[in-house]
Computed example of a mutant assay.
Amino acid sequence: MRESAAGRHDRLLALVRERGTVRVADLATLLGVSPVTARRDVEALAAKGLLDRVHGQVSWPERHAAVSEGLVLGLLAPSATYYFAEVIRGAHEAAARAGARLILRISDYRPEEDRARTEGLLAAGAEGVLVAPGWRGPEDRPAYGNWLAELPVPAVLLERRADPGSPLDALDRVVSDHGHGVLLALRHLLGLGHGTPLLVARGDSPTALAVRAGYAEALVTLGLEAPGPVIDSVPADQDPAGFERAVRALHEAVVSGRASAALVHNDVDAIEIVQRLAELGVKVPEDLALIAYDDEVAALADTPLTAVAPPKRQVGRHATELLVERLTEDPAEEAARRHLSLLPRLRVRSSCGAPSGGRPA
């Protein structure tokens, strides 16, 4: 498999950190790339302040050696699997690049335990924290969130938005723009000639709620009316009866002609819904064009599912880089707080009747 630019950058940084100073020509040999590629990589990393470049050589920045070396970062995530596995991987990569150590705590979507677990990170030596609270609904933000604004160390919110004007709204945060992802999906289905797609979505996580809100906004943006109410989805293994109700509602919309396309959150639900619909005589994509949301396992379905792919790994990377910047900046020149939104991509496969191949749209 061809190495990504990000992976190559990680190797390059590790080499410079280990050796202190390296000629760019030698880096090309060590990395097994062309001199042009090595120079381009060095320029990109130097522009981000990750390397110092002088007269054909690169050096590990003195500020990293003096400040970032031994830096300990904490990360609180609601899960270490499915969606957040990639977020954690991105954070770990960025921490390694900065010469920092990342320590992890998992909340298992129990927001009432977030504060204690974050205090555990501080007790373990974390000098700054990345926090993705285990909120399940909007009521959890005020009930289990304002303590974050009172932390004695810099904090960056991960994949979570704060209520406007709340104490948390003044924190740095890095999120996926799920509204943009939903709009990409609807535009793609409309472009294939379908009427307004239905939304089948969970309601038990911030991502699910953001997808629902994005759907309502996309309908307004596109000047459309929904062909029916949002169909409430639930995990088949936790609530078989609720799952069957969701499948039957979608089945009825298709056979009645009300809808020929749907966006389903999330991948696992989408795969199981496709399987159950087939048992009821509705096939994807022949009878129903379907797009999944998350793109964790969508490509592994019998009919590979077109899916919206939030930039999970990049969220972890950018948030970690922002936290390191907070910890290493001159207190007298503190930069403005930032709310960074990263755009999802649409990966087109077979489930909406478009050509397969997995290329980003």
Rank of each mutant, 00 (worst) to 15 (best):
A65T: 11
L192G: 15
G134P: 04
P197F: 11
L15D: 05
A226M: 05
R63A: 14
R349C: 10
L189G: 01
A216N: 03
G70S: 11
V129R: 10
L342S: 07
L15F: 03
L346N: 02
L250N: 01
V72D: 01
A301C: 14
A226T: 08
L250F: 00
V282R: 05
H188F: 06
V264E: 03
R337I: 14
L327Q: 09
R8K: 15
T328P: 01
S350Q: 10
E329Q: 14
V284L: 08
A155Y: 00
D172K: 07
L151C: 06
L189F: 00
T306G: 09
N146R: 11
G281Y: 00
G316S: 07
E93H: 07
S256Y: 06
R117N: 11
L189S: 03
A270N: 00
P152E: 13
A170P: 02
R117M: 13
P35N: 10
R110P: 01
L30S: 13
L327D: 06
L222P: 01
A249C: 07
L219T: 09
A98C: 15
R11L: 04
E127Y: 10
D302V: 15
T221M: 11
R313N: 06
A259Y: 01
V24L: 07
R326G: 13
R347G: 01
E334T: 15
L151F: 02
L343R: 15
R313K: 12
D177R: 03
G214E: 14
S350Y: 07
R245C: 02
W60D: 03
H339R: 12
H9K: 12
R115D: 05
I106C: 12
D269P: 06
G223R: 05
L305H: 02
G145E: 06
A289R: 07
P360A: 09
R187T: 04
E325A: 15
A47S: 13
H180D: 14
G20C: 11
D302R: 14
G74L: 06
R276G: 08
E127H: 09
L51Q: 01
E334W: 12
Y215L: 12
L27A: 02
P310Y: 00
R11I: 11
L209F: 12
A47H: 13
L224P: 08
K283S: 13
A259T: 10
V315A: 04
A289D: 05
N146H: 14
V22S: 07
H318N: 01
A155P: 04
S79P: 08
G90K: 02
L151W: 03
L219M: 14
I271W: 03
E217P: 01
P133D: 09
L73A: 07
V348P: 11
P355K: 08
E119W: 08
L15Y: 03
G195D: 09
L323Q: 07
L189C: 08
T328I: 13
A201D: 12
G316E: 05
D295I: 05
L222Q: 02
R40L: 14
T21P: 01
D232N: 04
D239K: 00
A162N: 09
P285Y: 04
R338W: 04
G128N: 13
A5R: 15
S356T: 10
P133M: 04
S59Q: 06
R359G: 05
L322Q: 08
R89D: 15
G137M: 13
G7C: 09
